[in-house]
Design a protein around this nucleic acid. Structure first.
Length: 303
DNA sequence: AAGGGAACCAACCGCGTACGA
DNA sequence: ATCGTACGCGGTTGGTTCCCT
């Protein structure tokens, strides 16, 4: 709806906060609470817009903010949650005590993103497919095809759910992925790290693939919830299902494979991917394990 | 020592959503 | 049902610091 003007451009300070401004903001909020951010600057005697005050408080002044370098555990958590949630920094931040979405976003963009993309052999690389790995490993190719089929199926279910169930918003809640994170799915993700530590430095790619496959399976088998990550916020009711389905893919690709379009060669249509999967020899798709779950999903028999 | 590029990060901007009138 | 307002979020910018030559 109507968009509120950001803030008055005249008579409002911008740029770095001074210690005096910080103190004034902290004092005021400690005394009165933040209340209405828009009116707060006037009451607190600050020449800032409410938005700026809110940001300064949330990202810097709020009690419990953890400063300093990220620990290895935090890094791993961010990487894994990012693989699960995409660029939903607030959701990721909610799982890291004392870290703000802004800090995590910055840390991802300046440290982790590069590292994950540049180090295919390193930990968690399975979460972001690498072109060489994809082309070299049959089981990984199948995994990617599986993932493609899974996403497509979930997209379909999401659309059906939207059409059939007006309460679909509860199923697309961002919290759903965090529930997954705290369930067996998250555990499977974390197992990757555990295995890695157990084998000290030489975790084989097949084991990584296995771990990733388990994650895929468990994400899928947990329910019929849609992939909110790739669901457009506004959908034209006249949009065809095909158009909708195709509109989901680029987002997934962006999130999973970066900007290298060469990585998408295996992201074919759901039907062909599915056929491919279901006609594979058992030993070839052994890592998938529970094909029944997928069929259940398609039948809508999963909870 | 200087200067130029890279890296970092606080802060800003604009959009989407929730909610009340 | 529509509109206006406030807030939250993710993307981006720009100032500062670091590092290399």
């Amino acid at each position: 709806m109507g968009k509120a003007p950001c803030c008055e451009k005249h008579g409002v300070r911008r740029g770095a906060w001074t210690p005096e401004e910080d103190q004034a903001l902290v004092d005021y909020i400690n005394k009165h609470g933040h209340g209405n951010w828009r009116t707060l600057p006037n009451h607190a005697g600050l020449l800032r817009c409410g938005k700026s005050c809110r940001l300064r408080w949330i990202n810097y002044l709020r009690p419990g903010i953890k400063r300093g370098p990220f620990t290895n555990e935090e890094e791993t958590t961010i990487i894994q949650l990012h693989a699960l949630l995409g660029n939903r920094w607030a959701a990721i931040a909610s799982q890291l005590q004392g870290r703000t979405d802004n800090e995590i976003k910055n840390y991802w963009n300046t440290h982790l993103k590069k590292r994950v993309l540049q180090s295919p052999g390193e930990k968690n690389s399975c979460l972001i497919p690498d072109k060489n790995v994809l082309s070299n490993s049959p089981s990984t190719r199948h995994m990617v095809q599986w993932e493609s089929a899974r996403v497509e199926a979930e997209t379909r279910l999401s659309m059906e759910s939207t059409l059939l169930n007006s309460d679909s918003t509860t199923k697309t809640s961002p919290d759903y992925f965090l529930q997954l994170w705290h369930s067996e799915v998250g555990e499977a993700f974390r197992k990757i790290k555990g295995k890695e530590e157990a084998s000290s430095s030489s975790l084989s790619s097949s084991k990584l693939e296995e771990s990733c496959s388990n994650v895929s399976l468990q994400v899928k088998s947990t329910g019929t919830q849609s992939l909110k990550v790739s669901t457009p916020k506004h959908e034209d009711v006249n949009t065809t299902q095909e158009q909708k389905a195709s509109s989901y893919r680029p987002k997934l690709e962006d999130d999973r494979a970066g900007s290298d379009s060469g990585n998408y060669e295996f992201l074919d249509t759901s039907d062909s991917a599915l056929k491919h999967l279901l006609h594979m020899p058992d030993d070839d798709i052994g890592f998938l394990g529970q094909t029944d779950n997928f069929l259940n999903l398609l039948d809508g028999r999963c909870d």
